[in-house]
Design a binder for these strands. Structure first.
Lengths: 342, 342
DNA sequence: CGGGGGCGTGAGAACGCTCTCACGGCCGTG
DNA sequence: CACGGCCGTGAGAGCGTTCTCACGCCCCCG
C-alpha cells in the first residue's frame, strides 16, 4: 500500500492474464475478439480488463502487426489565410465522418513551409500512419515524392501536375469552369474577366483552362488584361478585382475561381460602385456556405464534396488493404448553382 | 536479383550494423547522437544509414522509451461552422510554429460528436501521444476527465468550468468584455445589448460576465431583453442581431462576443437599415483579420494570441518533462482595438 | 614497468504485444 | 473400444528498438 496516487503505469497483457487465470495468448484473443475462446474464459478476461482498466499498448501491437490503424490527412498549405477556407473544413469533416464508422483514427497534419513538410515526411516514414491523404498540392511539393518512394499508401485530393501513377480524387474543375464561362457568355456578357487561383496549384490551372475553353467555345477572345491571379483568399480576391477594374474598366462579368475570392471581389465591386449583376455578373466556384448568404447571393460552380470525401477514404483504404492494387482515380462532376449574382 | 521493385521492407538497425561493421548498439548511439562514438565508427554508420535509407522504426523505439515525441491538439467542436473560425486557425498555426523548432510532431484531432471524442480518448490512452492541448471545451465534454484519469499531460486552451487542478492558458475574457462594455457606456451609449457566445463554453460565460460587470460599473441596468445567445459563427451572429432588433428596437450599441458573430451582426444591422456606428455602436472580440476589413472596420477586444500559443506549448512541454510538477496556468491580458464601428 | 581509470564497444535482456505451433480433451465414427 | 479430428488453450519465438553492463584497450601516473 505504498502508492495509490502515483504511477499509473498501464497494466499489461500478462497482468490481465494473471488476474483472469488464463494465458497471455487467450487475453490477446479476447481483446482482438477472435471467435476461438470459450465463453467462460472470455468472461473472465473481460472482467479482468475492466477491473484493471486495461488498454492495449498500440506501440507494441503495431510493432508486430505493422499496422497503426491511423491515417493522416495532410494540409499542405503555406498560406495561413487559406487555412480557414471552408473547402478545407468540408473535406476534413467529410473524411472524418467517413472514418468514424471504421476503427481507423484520423490525424490532421499541417505544413506551412518546406521544413514542416519534411517533418511530416519523416513522421510518415517512421511508421506512424498506414496511409496519407494529401490536400492542397502545389507544383513544387516534395511530399508526394517522399511518400511514394517510401511506399506509403497515398491519395491526392486534386490531380497531380505530372501524369504520375498516383491515386487521386478531383472535381471536374475544367468542366465546371467551362460551364461557368459559357453561361456568362450565353447571358450576353462580352467582356468576361477571370480571377484565377494560384497557378502553382492544379485547381487554379484547370479552372483557368476551363474558363478559356468556355470563352473559345462561345467565340469570344481570351484577353490577357481580363486575367488576374488570386490566391484563393477573400483578401486576394478583392485585390485582384481592384486590379482588374483598373486595367479593364469595361469588363461586364467575372468568373472567380473560388467562393472566398468571389466574396472579396463582390466587396471590391461594391466599393467601386459597380452593381452586381447589372453592371458586372459574378460567378464563383465551390458553392461554399458563404455563397448563399453574401450580397447578392452568389451564382457558383458546386463541387460534389459529398461524393469526393467518401471516395477519398475509400481509395485510400483499398490501397491499404490490397497490396498490389493499381492506383485508381476519380473525377467528380460539378454543376452550376444559379443565384442572384449572374 | 529476384526483387528490385517489390518489398520496400524498411531496413532495420542490425542490417545497418552489419553493413557498417559495428554492433547494433553503436548504430543506435549514432542515430541518437550520443557523444560516445569514435569518429570512424560514426562515419561508417552514417554512410550505411544513407546507403540503406534507414529510418528508425518509431513503434519499436516508443515501446522502450515510452515516448512518442508527438503531441496532439484536439479541436473539440461539434459545430462544423465554427471549424473555419479564424481563431482556431491562429492557434493551430501558432502552436505548430512553436513546435517546429523542437523535434516534437504535432497532430490535430477533431471531434464532431461524443463518439469521436471517445475515439480520441482511446487514441490518447493507447499511447499515441505524449500530451494533449485541448481547445474549445464545452461544459459537458468527457475528454478532460478521460485524459486526466489516464495521466496524460494536458493543457486546456481556456479555463475549465470547475476549479479542477488542470493547466490552462486563457485570455482575460472577463476583463476584456468589461472594458468593451465600459467603453461603450463611456461613449454615451445607454441601451447596450450583447450577443453572447455559447453559454456552455467558458469563453461565452466569461465574456457575458464581463459585459455585465462593465454595465454595472457604469451604473447601467442589465436588461434581459438586451441579451441574445449566439454560437460564435457569422450566421449565428446575424440571427441573434435580428432577434435583438425585434425585441429591443431602441438599442444603441451591442457588444458581440466574437468577431465572426460581429460580422454577421453588422450585416443584420445593415439589412435593418441601421447605421454603424451612428445608430448602433458595435464592439467585437478576437481582433481577427476580418475585423480590419469589414465595413465599417470593427472595434474589437484583441486576444493576445502571440502570447498564448507559445505558453500553451511551453506549459505542456514542462508537464511532459517534469514528472511531479504542479499544474500551472496563465491568463493573458487583452486590449481594446479602436476602429470605426464604435 | 605495473596498476588504475577513462573511453569506445558489444552482448543480451527488456519493452508489450501477436502469432505459430503443439498439446490435451472431447466428440463422432468405424 | 480404438482412432482421427476439432476446438480451446498455452508455451515461446519474434517484432525493432534502447539501455544496462561488462569487457578490452590505451593512456597516464606512481
Amino acid at each position: 500500500m505504498t502508492d495509490t496516487t502515483s504511477r499509473a503505469a498501464s497494466p499489461t497483457l500478462d497482468e490481465v492474464a494473471v488476474l483472469a487465470g488464463v494465458s497471455r495468448a487467450t487475453v490477446s484473443r479476447v481483446v482482438n475478439d477472435s471467435p476461438k475462446v470459450s465463453p467462460e474464459a472470455r468472461q473472465a478476461v473481460l472482467s479482468a480488463v475492466a477491473q484493471l482498466r486495461y488498454v492495449p499498448n498500440r506501440m507494441a501491437r503495431s510493432l508486430v502487426t505493422r499496422r497503426t490503424d491511423t491515417v493522416a490527412l495532410v494540409l499542405n498549405e503555406p498560406n495561413t489565410q487559406v487555412f480557414s477556407d471552408p473547402f478545407f473544413a468540408s473535406i476534413v469533416r467529410g473524411v472524418s465522418a467517413t472514418l468514424a464508422d471504421t476503427d481507423l483514427n484520423l490525424v490532421l497534419l499541417t505544413a506551412q513551409d518546406e521544413r514542416e513538410q519534411e517533418k511530416i515526411g519523416r513522421y510518415a516514414r517512421q511508421g506512424h500512419v498506414d496511409g496519407v491523404i494529401l490536400m492542397s498540392v502545389h507544383s513544387d511539393d516534395p511530399l508526394p515524392d517522399i511518400l511514394e518512394e517510401a511506399g506509403i499508401p497515398l491519395v491526392l485530393c486534386g490531380r497531380p501536375f505530372d501524369d504520375r501513377a498516383v491515386a487521386y480524387v478531383d472535381a471536374d474543375n475544367r468542366g465546371g469552369a467551362r460551364e461557368a464561362a459559357a453561361y456568362l457568355a450565353a447571358s450576353g456578357r462580352r467582356r468576361i474577366a477571370t480571377i484565377t487561383g494560384p497557378l502553382d496549384m492544379i485547381a487554379g490551372v484547370d479552372r483557368l483552362a476551363g474558363y478559356q475553353a468556355g470563352l473559345a467555345a462561345a467565340g469570344q477572345e481570351v484577353r490577357a488584361d481580363l486575367l488576374a491571379e488570386g490566391d484563393f483568399t477573400e483578401v486576394g480576391g478583392a485585390r485582384a478585382m481592384a486590379a482588374l477594374l483598373e486595367r479593364a474598366p469595361d469588363l461586364d462579368a467575372v468568373f472567380v475561381a473560388s467562393d472566398p475570392m468571389a466574396v472579396g471581389a463582390l466587396r471590391a465591386l461594391r466599393e467601386a460602385g459597380r452593381r452586381v449583376p447589372e453592371d458586372v455578373a459574378v460567378v464563383g466556384f465551390d458553392d461554399a456556405a458563404v455563397a448563399e448568404r453574401c450580397d447578392p447571393p452568389l451564382t457558383t460552380v458546386a463541387q460534389p464534396l459529398t461524393d469526393m470525401t467518401p471516395l477519398l477514404t475509400e481509395l485510400l483504404l483499398r490501397q491499404i488493404e490490397g497490396v498490389g492494387e493499381q492506383a485508381e482515380s476519380r473525377v467528380c462532376r460539378t454543376h452550376l448553382v444559379r443565384r442572384a449574382s449572374a
